[in-house]
Write a protein that binds this DNA or RNA. Structure first.
Lengths: 253, 253
DNA sequence: CATCTTGAGAGGTATGACCAATTCGTCTAT
DNA sequence: ATAGACGAATTGGTCATACCTCTCAAGATG
């Protein structure tokens, strides 16, 4: 085993990684920095890379698994390990482990969801692309076609709101949003809570989604924010009661 | 090796983790969710935990190393492995690998911070108590007394904003805020970035914090939102540039 | 040309042994 | 009685070896 360098911890909030693991991190960093490796490149096979670095394969695997956790590499069984460019979409476990330790209540989760979605919507006014608009229009159409159905309606609703967040082109907000909302849309009761029962209410729900899209198309930040916040008020009480009983069990699945 | 469950990936941007590793993640998630394990608890020794879960020690170590990468556990040689609550300070490697490949992450974290703080501020207009107001007034006074100092000024600034978020009485928002921001205030450059240099600017910063508090006292949601958002614009570019430079040098070791 | 099969390559896992760091208990000196 | 030193036990770090499982590409067959 080669001597480790006397470098400081990778992060002031994490203890110093073991020497073998750190050597792998450092090696890969240098490879990227020197452009010897670029995003998409396949790393040498584990056995070869471990020998090259003078560490054992389990040590190399530890390091690679950790890098996979943050999306820096993608490990594919039988195919090899590829260098990836981390983005916050890879941080689902980070956010879920963080939130699991606070036992959030349903209303709070909705508030955080609102926070993230409204901020992403603001960004979307500046950043949304033609592709985003296409996606959102298709999502509105999907809502129109499924507004009275529990399963499909909830899926279409989620797709619309997720597309809106994606249009903000902020990976951290998108990752947070996914963590916060994915469990929501999986609960039966939440799905029922998003399903209007009267024709009048159905029409209103469809129109509201159109109003959101219109404000975005016009890139009107304040109107979009207002329309969206009012959108969330609708059905809030009904939804909250439904969610409370199921929210905590979902993050462990 | 026990059969793995047919669950989907923890994050949609990462391929499915290998079965053994996933089993460890799931186990720990459940332990946390059920309060069998709380932050600060020491996990069983590797040999014992591996046997308990029916995986080999190298597999357990892979999983733990990955969790250590996001700050969910702290591994100490000779002492044991402790459960930690992840916060962004643990993501040094994430940021460094991301930035080495030109991923624009710092601005995103700030956007998430803004989302959370503004939503918490909205809630605070309805929920702030007399104690909250007392805390916030003291925080403003502390800002007045330290506005030209790098360390103390940053601490006072952070205390004010944290108190504002706390006044929203939303544990999820408060936790997210802590997760996203506490590490920032630890960097020297961020602190310098929040330290006004001219008397005029100092007075403006003090007044802006007072305006925020006034809007809250009047429980004026829209004014508070507007004042706060404008507050964030000030110094944003300076801060971002400073953070990006600092992150590379500080975390890449 | 399209589809299927096979073999090589590459990741996934287990076992056992040994090394290194930390913690705790015991003994000795003051 | 207290403090410090030392050694043993505990626990993480690493290595070597063997075997299993998945993926992919090349070759064979219809």
């Amino acid at each position: 085993m080669p001597a480790t360098r006397g470098s400081k911890p990778a992060s002031s909030s994490r203890p110093r990684d073991a020497g073998g693991v750190r050597l792998v991190y450092d090696f890969l960093r240098e490879q990227i920095l020197s452009k010897s490796l670029v995003t998409g490149d396949r790393l040498p096979p584990e056995r070869d890379l471990a020998a090259q670095l003078g560490v054992s394969r389990p040590v190399l695997r530890e390091a690679l698994r950790a890098l996979a956790m943050i999306g820096a590499v993608e490990i594919r069984h039988g195919a090899g390990t590829v260098l990836r460019r981390p983005d916050a979409a890879a941080l689902g476990d980070f956010f879920s482990f963080a939130m699991l330790q606070d036992a959030p209540v349903a209303e709070d989760v909705m508030q955080a969801r609102i926070a993230v979605e409204c901020q992403a919507a603001r960004l979307a006014c500046a950043r949304a692309t033609a592709t985003d608009f296409t996606t959102l229009r298709a999502a509105v159409e999907a809502i129109e076609g499924t507004v009275g159905e529990v399963e499909a309606g909830a899926r279409a609703d989620h797709a619309f709101h997720s597309a809106l967040v994606q249009a903000g082109h902020s990976p951290v907000l998108a990752a947070l949003y996914a963590t916060l909302t994915e469990p929501l849309y999986r609960t039966h009761v939440f799905r029922r809570g998003t399903t209007p029962s009267t024709d009048e209410f159905k029409a209103y729900v469809i129109d509201d989604h159109k109003r959101i899209l219109t404000a975005l198309v016009e890139r009107n930040v304040e109107r979009l924010d207002a329309v969206l916040r009012r959108h969330f008020v609708i059905g809030d009480e009904f939804r909250e009661q439904a969610i409370q009983r199921e929210i905590l069990s979902m993050w462990s699945a």
